[in-house]
Design a protein around this nucleic acid. Structure first.
Lengths: 353, 353
DNA sequence: CTGAAAGCGCTTACAG
DNA sequence: CTGAAAGCGCTTACAG
């Protein structure tokens, strides 16, 4: 039993196994990698020797020699954000099926940390997925020079040889705005996300242009990506006199709802609230949250599909956008002072486009 | 610019750099690893050559040669569970400070998958943290034989040379039970977690013995670890006539709250609800959830501290338990039919022990 | 102080 | 079909 009893009883290598089994190291390697070996007697001896010595192949040596790692790296800005963990779930499920394993790394929303991690990780992986990368375009360009297949999610990288897959949040946002408009709202507020978020920019754009199209007034306040930001910034919008609030994401909406409860503003009676992402808790809130649902797990799956193809044929730089869709629950209702026909619709799901 | 224009213009190695700089590979290695090199002229030439060739050292080769990886592996059952992501945050923050990087892997709550991932990961890391491992004790024993420092969280591994760090959930659970007792409740229900969870067993034990101590009746129904489980199983407990419900974790409590809203059972007026973990959303629910707070980030930090020490002095097998503490918010109130003096306490925090 | 050489533990052409 | 040998890209004793 080659186990360390105490201290370092040096780990058995393929040479030790070969000696013990009285064969060459080539044969040991073949047996252990299930390559054809004619003499069954040899196979038996090798397996016995490996067992006896507690031999475990040195994976780093093998990766080194093969020039491949069978690992896929994933970089996310914040593992505590449910959006990313659901993308990861989709990825993990499909990757697990194959022979690769997923190595996840959290950049802590720090662009500098992010590029460093990416460069370190790239050396130890066969391919990478960068989830909503926060790094500068210049750094993304450096990533493109890393000669390893890379997919970016929710970040446009036009002109760079990186695969892109994202959610078309403009469409979902436009649906949300239209929904509020149809309910009679004429002045809405946006609890914006982090400045470094490309998705926030897209959502804000979508909101602004949809509102402009139907002549709605929009007030914006910068919140962030977590619930306390929504809790803190919500009053800014109330002061502006909005009757509907759209949040950068569901977490921010959760904070807004809590603040409204504290202020005894009834939702949806006095004010309508719309989230974004449709994280699991959204459906369980009081009231259940009207939100824009994005296919998080599909995003992960699609990223893996794209990455795998890129690893196979070496072709890069495709682009793919998944639809988002408004899910109407119970946090939105007709404008308090202006009842109208479109009111009272509940729990429907409207497909994007 | 050694970048691949298309196809594989083979990556520059240390040999190419040495040739270009007209020095030995030893010197290149020394310069690039910032070891003392006397002749500044050489340093300049090496840096220039490396730049010109776009040289990036092969990390796998270096890890192989050094016999170390500067990576720490972390295995979690489910990245979508906020509890684990917060433990990870604590870990990541402290690890980031040093020279190590964190490689996270999700076992999908599958014990078989878990042991496989652990064995693969162990070969590519200098140390590992297993968060709430679901694998059998026999498999844990195999892990102990992997001659790599390993810390387990929330799992007792008595007799095995693995570091253990966990949360003493029995204490927090006892506080929750006492809290309900003092509010006049005499029959409570438990929405239990997954069978494979060691923490659930501990919490259930804590609940049962605390309830027995004060003569309270307990009904148990097996839910799981996600909100829909709480939503689905809650009625089982109502049927038993409980006036207070304790959930395995906050997610399950969220589901229970949603079901109660649907059933128009007032919380806390008609029924009290207590969660576990104190995830961020707990404080933002309607009503804000009374729950047992566990020091998730501290758990991660402590795991890293223990692992680092184990990697330094090779000493293994310490044990450490962090306290949990009840946080009283607004989802608990006096038993509806039995008002009494202890009632109405709000928003206090009771330290463990 | 720098360079030539050994060697980490494997896999895989190449001989026999 | 199996074995002897080369070599992946580094780091680090060891010479000079």
């Amino acid at each position: 039993m080659g186990r360390n009893v105490s201290g370092a009883a040096k780990r058995a290598t393929i040479i030790d196994v070969a000696r013990q089994a009285r064969v060459s190291i080539s044969t040991v390697s073949r047996v252990l990698n299930e390559r054809p070996v004619a003499d069954q007697e040899l196979v038996v001896r090798v397996r016995a020797a490996a067992d006896e010595l507690g031999y475990r192949p040195n994976a780093v040596a093998r990766d080194f020699r093969r020039g491949r790692t069978t690992s896929i790296g994933v970089v996310v800005p914040d593992l505590a954000n449910p959006f990313f963990t659901h993308v990861l779930k989709g990825l993990a499920n499909d990757v697990r099926a194959g022979e690769h394993r997923l190595l996840v790394v959290d950049s802590g929303e720090d662009p500098e940390e992010e590029i460093q991690l990416v460069e370190q990780l790239a050396e130890r992986c066969d391919g990478m997925v960068l989830c909503s990368p926060r790094m500068s375009r210049a750094h993304l360009q450096a990533v493109a020079g890393l000669d390893i297949p890379v997919i970016c999610t929710n970040r446009s990288v036009a002109g760079l040889p990186l695969g892109t897959i994202g959610v078309d949040s403009a469409v979902g946002m436009a649906q949300a705005v239209t929904h509020l408009y149809e309910l009679g709202h004429r002045h809405v507020g946006y609890l914006a996300g982090p400045q470094s978020s490309w998705s926030d920019a897209r959502r804000r754009e979508g909101l602004t242009s949809a509102a402009a199209a139907c002549g709605m007034e929009v007030s914006v306040t910068v919140a962030g990506s977590a619930s306390d930001a929504g809790f803190t910034r919500l009053p800014d919008l109330l002061r502006e006199g909005v009757t509907g609030v759209l949040a950068f994401n569901d977490l921010v909406a959760v904070g807004a709802l809590a603040r409204l409860r504290e202020l005894e503003v009834a939702v949806p009676g006095d004010l309508s609230v719309v989230g974004f992402d449709d994280i699991p808790v959204a459906a369980f809130l009081g009231p259940p949250l009207t939100t824009v649902s994005v296919p998080k797990e599909d995003l992960g799956r699609a990223a893996w599909a794209m990455l795998r193809q890129q690893m196979q044929d070496g072709e890069v730089a495709s682009e793919q956008w998944l639809p988002s869709a408004l899910v109407v629950r119970q946090s939105t209702a007709p404008h308090p002072k202006r009842l109208q026909s479109g009111a009272g619709r509940r729990d429907g799901r409207r497909a994007a486009r």
